[in-house]
Amino acid sequence: MTRPEEGKRLIITVLGHDKVGIIAMISTILAEAQINILDISQTILQEFFTMVMVVDTSGSQTDVVTLRDILTRKGEEMGIKITVQHEDIFKFMHRV
């Protein structure tokens, strides 16, 4: 059974128009927070940039709320939509 609380992984998604430096910006913020990138995949879909990133926060002191605030703000500056979600919601929704 999926056990909530235990997961230390977050899913970061980015949606918006493609431009230079999106991944650099996000990975810099993650590196500063000691958050490890486990997986990254991106596509350009209907002229839109879509990126999904799986990250591990077990070595980080930064909590999810703070990280979400930082990334959301940076995303707004760059005109892109960044979301940060706990992995459990995806596991619960798509797997029994």
Binding site: L38, V52, T83, Q85, M93, H94, R95
Partner: peptide, 18 residues
Amino acid sequence: PFSISKDEILETVSMLQT
């Protein structure tokens, strides 16, 4: 391993965001 597909992730995000 994290086995959720990208489409599933984007579906969930869209449900919550829009």
